[in-house]
Design a protein around this nucleic acid. Structure first.
Length: 341
DNA sequence: AATGAGGAACTGA
DNA sequence: TCAGTTCCTCATT
């Protein structure tokens, strides 16, 4: 029942900007990605079958794999208005997120209970999707050291975002076609403008940018206090939490390599194919795709020439400092945090 | 060939 | 001064 197709086909979603904050084209991109390879959580021991990290797949992945029955059950129940911080560990329906729907009960058409339940379920799914998207944008901001609002980007930020998007969707390199643009220019471009600069990738780039713009719009709305996220009074809305995190992490403090690695490790749904825990308790992790991790680090630090040779040298600098070491039984591409969390 | 270890010089904040 | 980055040689897998 809770499929992305339903999300997208719901006409209410298509009013830009909808309460989810996402516009038609961005939702269309989200839907399209549903057809791409889903992220699996299984270890990739032989290093084969590495798909792209698929930032926006995780939420759909979960929706498909989870039993969605709880959505109806919780929506039927009650007064809770919070959106929970995570979907994955949600085993018990009682603890699952519920979103307050301002229009419910006030409709002049007096929808049936069934319709109300369905509508609420839909909104829940939408909000979960939005939450995941915001979280993924937050991660991208951390990794690229850019602000979440495309309007604030300079030319360098635009190039980073393009590189990132190319990497994410396995697009051909199009950065050159946009080399003269800053964020404002980019945001003012229509899909046709995109098509003129990059016929192959215009649709994806435009839609992906649309997601970022919508997310920035939401952030603006949240921080303005205009709608304090629809009746959430006890806890912060997930989106707000995320943005406050994003703000602190984008505050210009140079990130350390060990922090960067830890961030990747904390996002297994996005980066589990290039780096993953072997033993989280002991802080032992394995770099599954050394070139990929090095590329991400290079992106983050603005070092296009970064490779695993250099990255591993930096990791080895941590041996003396007691931050990272090789595990007792040394294995290729396996390291261990000396002080696991 | 890829990875690992570590020295040494260098860079940018 | 710090936290890497770059380049290097040599060893191991």
């Amino acid at each position: 029942m809770a499929s992305p197709v339903r999300i997208q086909s719901d006409s209410a979603v298509l009013q830009p900007p909808h309460s989810t904050g996402f516009t038609e084209s961005s939702l269309a991109l989200l839907k399209r990605e549903d057809g791409l390879e889903m992220v699996d959580h299984k270890p990739c021991l032989d290093g084969s079958d590495r798909g792209h990290p698929g930032l926006y797949l995780s939420c759909f992945d979960m929706l498909f794999t989870e039993d969605a029955a709880w959505l109806v059950r919780v929506s039927d129940s009650s007064t809770s208005t919070d959106i929970g911080p995570r979907l994955e560990p949600c085993q018990e329906p009682e603890q699952c997120p519920v979103i307050d729907s301002p229009g419910l009960g006030a409709s002049p058409l007096s929808p049936t209970l069934e319709e109300q339940v369905e509508e609420r379920s839909l909104e829940q799914v939408q909000s979960l999707v939005v939450g995941e998207v915001l979280k993924d944008i937050e991660t991208a901001c951390k990794l690229l050291n850019i602000t979440p609002d495309p309007m604030e980007w300079n030319c360098g930020n635009v190039q980073k975002w393009l590189l990132w998007t190319e990497h994410l969707y396995r697009l051909p390199q199009v950065g050159k076609a946009f080399h003269d643009l800053d964020g404002k220019d980019l945001c003012s471009m229509s899909e046709e403008d995109f098509r003129q600069r990059s016929p192959q990738c215009s649709e994806t780039l435009h839609a992906h940018l649309d997601i970022w713009k919508s997310a920035a719009w939401m952030k603006e709305r949240c921080s303005g206090g205009e709608t304090r996220m629809r009746g959430t009074s006890q806890k912060q809305h997930k989106g707000e939490e995320l943005w406050s995190e994003a703000d602190s992490s984008c505050s210009g403090q140079p990130i350390h390599l060990w922090q960067f690695l830890r961030e990747l490790l904390l996002k297994p749904h996005s980066y589990g194919r290039c780096i993953r825990w072997l033993n989280k308790e002991k802080g032992i992790f394995k770099i599954e795709d050394s070139a990929h991790v090095a590329r991400l680090w290079g992106l983050r630090k603005n070092r296009p020439a970064m490779n695993y040779d250099k990255l591993s040298r930096s990791i080895r600098q941590y041996y003396k400092k007691g931050i990272i070491r090789k595990p007792d039984v040394s294995q290729r591409l396996v390291y261990q945090f000396v002080h696991p969390v």
